[in-house]
């Protein structure tokens, strides 16, 4: 009989790890609290830098793990340590003994309504990056008007924000904002589009090319200054205030749509859970890797491994690479090497 490996979370990290574990001859068991696989990526429209449909990635992964055991709409009620592994108890009554567990529980999207000054949930035309992707994917959204004349993107919403409890940069939002700004400009060629940023952190393959393209071909304007306050005008447009730090002057502009780049934050439930089996939690609330250079996949407990954004903010390719690395690491561990 093939050996079980429990994977907590059915996002792309869990799926990619399951695929590799199947190839290595194990029986991966994915436990996912939602009713579908793919996590945040399943809601996404297109992935930078190649603009490939996110759905294709999720579909490919789903097909590749058809032989895995997958429990949807299932939660883990407890994990108990054994002398040589774990027993994972599920909300459906199943309990699984195993020697290795992979934590792939991902991140939470920052709740943008916590930044009260931006009025998410209060003003009619304030949405998040995630809402916009859903709209690109065909979901109805009455907050997005038919013919916007001006659109703004606010970078770093809940990220790099000590007051919101998150010191970390979410890495992907700068690039996502550039990508979404271009996609919106393609749909609304007459709209003025502004990105309000503090620093542009465009570190990945081809990201800078996107930025140059956004400036030159799409005329997207980048304003260095964090939006401090949003109000709604009598015409139900948005009045946005920021400092134009390069001019050294306050700036205001009226917009028809404001997109908040909600960051990646830790899942507090996971941190709570981690304490029950003495997994270390990092100062940013994410699960703590054994070390952040050579041991990102490893936890402080034998047999417990990590992949993806449960240990910190990650891009999609980083997550997939970590999932593969974790599968190999688990294989090494189970071979006793």
């Amino acid at each position: 009989m093939k050996e079980n490996v429990v994977i907590i979370g059915g996002g792309i990290a869990g799926m990619e790890a399951a695929r590799q574990l199947l190839l290595l001859g194990y029986t991966p068991i994915i436990v996912e609290k939602k009713d579908h696989l793919g996590g945040h990526v399943a809601r996404w429209h297109k992935l930078f830098p190649d603009m490939a449909p996110a759905g294709d990635l999720v579909r490919r992964l789903s097909e590749a793990i058809s032989e895995a055991n997958i429990f949807l709409e299932t939660r883990i009620t407890s994990i108990n340590r054994l002398s040589n592994g774990y027993v994972v108890m599920l909300s459906n009554g199943v309990s699984i003994p195993c020697r290795a567990v992979l934590g792939a529980s991902g991140f939470r999207l920052f709740d943008a309504s916590k930044k009260e000054e931006y009025g998410y949930g209060v003003y009619n035309h304030v949405i998040t990056n995630s809402d916009l992707e859903a709209w690109f994917n065909g979901a109805e959204d009455p907050r997005i008007v038919a013919d916007p004349k001006a659109v703004g993107f606010v970078h770093c919403v809940g990220s790099r924000d000590l007051k919101a409890g998150n010191s970390q940069c979410s890495k992907v939002c700068c690039m996502t904002a550039v990508k979404q700004a271009i996609e919106l400009k393609e749909r609304f060629p007459d709209a003025r589009i502004y990105c309000f940023y503090m620093d542009l952190r465009l570190f990945g393959k081809k990201y800078e090319d996107f930025y140059i393209n956004a400036q030159q071909e799409y005329g997207i304007q980048f304003i260095r200054g964090r939006v401090s306050e949003v109000g709604e005008t009598a015409e139900e447009r948005l009045q946005v205030k920021a400092e134009d730090t390069l001019s050294g002057k306050p700036l205001k502009v009226q917009l028809d749509l404001l997109v908040l780049m909600s960051g990646m934050v830790c899942n507090p439930e996971v941190a709570e859970f981690a304490r029950t089996i003495r997994l270390d939690v990092d100062s940013d609330g994410f699960l703590k890797s054994l070390d952040n250079v050579g041991g990102i996949n490893r936890s402080n407990q034998p047999g417990f491994f990590y992949a993806g954004a449960c240990t910190g903010t990650k891009t999609v390719p980083e997550t997939l690479a970590e999932a593969r690395a974790a599968a190999l690491d688990i294989h090494r561990y189970l071979l006793g090497k």
Binding site: A150, Y194, D244, S247, K249, P250, L251, K252, V253, Q254
Partner: peptide, 11 residues
């Protein structure tokens, strides 16, 4: 007197 605003009004 009323002071002139230094705010940049992008509109």
């Amino acid at each position: 007197k009323l002071s002139k605003s230094a705010t940049i009004d992008l509109d």
